[in-house]
């Protein structure tokens, strides 16, 4: 076991997580209200550019909080940005081609409920979670800058947001620009979800580096994240749509955002609790 600095609770990290959730909802509300109030007339290219810009906003918000608040013991900023970029690159170079072109999930994933859940976990979940894990594990993990368990959560969140940014940019580009009001909800959901799932991975990574965990520890972490990933996507689909009625078949995307926010809060809360407990037990041991 490598020698490490005393373990500390770093409250601001957790504050950042909760602030991210809150500010994302505020951001969505503002964009949605502006879009509805102003009904901006975009040309196709400005709509595309605006969409791409909005797709980056969730990641920028989190990074901003992180930069502004982490004064006491600043993580090297370029490392966080670097992991963010690796997450994004892996998503664009491997993740999305694998899921969409090799596995062609759009052709079969929605066949039935079991397939949606199973495929969501085994294909989409594992591809995404493994790549986000890899973004941390094969870059910063062995460096001195990864010097306490909480760092796992920070870097993994950065990787998750990088992944989410690419997913969202692809969402905008492949649709040739999206309706901003509806699209921004989707983007916030993706960012919250990706950040939360990799939070799970990050917690397991942090523990793996500084405590001797069993051999199944890290696979368990990835699997949990993948299961959360698959279940969430299925659940969101179930929550937002009701049966088609005489008034039509509408989809309530806000419920999806609420679900994502609740899930992000729950996961962050659980990880916070777990980290605190392990820090206390470590301190008690000393």
């Amino acid at each position: 076991m490598p020698e490490s600095k005393p373990l500390r609770e770093r409250a601001h990290i957790w504050r950042d997580e909760f602030l991210l959730i809150a500010s994302l909802i505020v951001f969505v509300g503002i964009v949605y209200a502006l879009d509805n109030a102003l009904q901006p007339a975009f040309t196709p290219s400005t709509l595309l550019l605006t969409g791409v810009f909005l797709a980056l906003v969730p990641s920028v918000i989190w990074l901003m909080f992180f930069y502004v608040q982490d004064r006491l013991e600043p993580e090297p900023k370029h490392f966080v940005l670097g992991v963010f970029a690796i997450g994004a690159l892996l998503a664009a170079a491997i993740g999305m081609p694998l899921v969409e072109n090799v596995y062609r999930v759009s052709h079969w994933l929605y066949a039935d409920t079991v397939t949606t859940i199973l495929g969501g976990i085994l294909v989409v979940g594992f591809v995404q979670e493994f790549l986000k894990y890899a973004a941390v594990r094969y870059s910063i993990y062995h460096s001195e800058e990864f010097d306490e368990p909480t760092d796992g959560v920070i870097y993994a969140t950065a990787a998750g947001l990088g992944y989410a940014a690419v997913l969202n940019i692809q969402f905008v580009v492949s649709n040739g620009g999206v309706d901003l009001g509806a699209g921004v909800i989707r983007m916030a959901v993706v960012a919250l979800a990706q950040a939360s799932f990799s939070g799970i991975t990050g917690y397991f990574l942090g523990r793996a580096k500084f405590e001797s965990e069993k051999i199944w520890w890290m696979p368990l972490g990835i699997t949990l994240a993948a299961v959360a990933n698959g279940l969430f996507n299925w659940l969101r689909g179930r929550v937002v749509q009701t049966g088609v009625s005489l008034s039509g078949g509408s989809v309530n995307s806000w419920l999806g955002l609420a679900l994502a926010a609740v899930m992000a809060l729950a996961i962050t809360g659980i990880i916070l609790g777990l980290v605190r407990r392990s820090i206390r037990s470590a301190q008690a041991a000393k």
């Binding site: 759009s106 052709h107 994933l109 929605y110 949606t116 689909g237 749509q241 049966g243 088609v244 009625s245 005489l246 078949g249």
Partner: peptide
């Protein structure tokens, strides 16, 4: 009524009466 498109969840409403 059933609506179906590739890459989307099927949507349906059972036994609607006009």
């Amino acid at each position: 009524i059933v609506a179906s498109a590739q890459g989307y969840y099927d949507r349906y409403g059972d036994l609607l009466v006009w």
